[in-house]
């Protein structure tokens, strides 16, 4: 066991992956000498050299497009997109090439690349630095999307993602980077695509992921003080979603609230609610509710708290699913 921040855990995970496989290389803007704007790659260029930790030109499509070629050549590139809001120039390469080349080549090409994406709000940032674009990628066949929320998950999930043969969009909740936690350096907690029951409860299931997990856990604390037992599930994998864990929970509680920062319309939260309504129809004592960011561009930081799913908004949803007449 070691105590470290999530940023450091990612750094250690990347280091271990690079030590284990010489084909792993990192690419991104300012990831070398600077160590990345979040210091996730701090010191790696010094230890692994400029050929493996590549300070790239300022071109996101270039980062991903060249990573595709490197993957075809047999490398395992790990791309860093500096901020969520800058991934869009690379969107074409991600959905047109990354997601499809394994299929178009009849499986000859292995698109074993990872695209690291610091995402989400709660950090008081300026425009284009607080977005939640995970839904675009979760929607795209051929891609997988995961999001760690603890240092331990971060340390292991980045390694599991790098060794996986499918392309993975690795969404890192920026608001969690500096939170410390225990990291078990010997044993991974669970598979990359498995959900985790972050808190057990009886009355309501709250499914969430990424930056909203902590908010949901705090809401569960508040609900407990009001005599309500809330189960919180950290999805961890956004695509595919681990519905087994979620179904078991909803069949127990009969009530579902989904929490995410991204707006609800045609989103990951929509998929979770729809699928659990399908799979748990006879268990649901109330319609599933969602607590998400509003359907607006991400607001200026001084009012982001009013936009984001908050403890109060989650408690309100819990009230409504429990109070639903049945």
């Amino acid at each position: 066991m070691a105590q470290m921040t999530m940023a450091k855990a990612l750094n250690e995970g990347l280091r271990r992956a690079m030590e284990n496989n010489p084909k792993v290389l990192l690419m991104g803007e300012d990831i070398g000498k600077l160590g990345g704007v979040f210091r996730v790659t701090d010191g790696l260029q010094k230890d692994f050299g400029e050929d493996r930790v590549i300070d790239s030109p300022l071109a996101e499509s270039g980062i991903v497009g060249t990573a595709v070629g490197m993957a075809i050549r047999g490398y395992r590139p790990v791309c860093e997109i500096q901020f969520d809001g800058f991934v869009y120039p690379a969107f074409d390469q991600i959905v047109s090439q990354v997601a499809k080349l394994h299929s178009r080549s009849d499986g000859v090409y292995t698109m074993g690349l990872v695209i690291r994406l610091p995402y989400g709000g709660q950090i008081g940032a300026i425009e284009h630095h607080s977005e939640s674009p995970e839904g675009y990628f979760a929607h795209t066949a051929g891609l997988r999307v995961v999001s760690p929320t603890t240092p331990n998950d971060a340390y292991w999930m980045i390694q599991q993602a790098i060794s996986h043969d499918d392309p993975i969009i690795f969404c890192e909740p920026k608001c969690r980077y500096w939170e410390k936690g225990d990291v078990d350096l010997d044993h991974p907690p669970r598979g990359l695509f498995e959900a985790n029951v972050a808190r057990e409860g009886r009355d309501v299931t709250v499914v969430t992921y990424g930056p909203s997990v902590r908010t949901a856990l705090r809401a569960a604390d508040a609900a407990a003080a009001e005599g309500r037992s809330v189960e919180v599930i950290d999805a961890r994998s956004i695509a595919p979603l681990d519905f087994g864990v979620m179904v078991t929970s909803v069949q127990k509680t009969g009530r579902l609230v989904v929490v995410a920062e991204a707006p609800a319309n045609a989103s990951v939260s929509a998929e979770i609610a729809a699928r659990l309504a399908e799979d748990c129809f006879y268990s649901l004592s109330a319609p599933p509710l969602r607590v998400t960011g509003y359907h607006t561009p991400y607001p200026p930081s001084r009012i982001e708290e009013e936009y984001l799913p908050s403890v109060d908004r989650i408690l309100d949803a819990i009230d409504r699913v429990i109070g639903f007449e049945s």
């Binding site: 009969g254 129809f281 006879y282 649901l284 004592s285 109330a286 639903f324 049945s326």
Partner: peptide
């Protein structure tokens, strides 16, 4: 009109 568990 009824909830799924009641229908079940």
């Amino acid at each position: 009109r009824s909830t799924p568990p009641v229908r079940l």
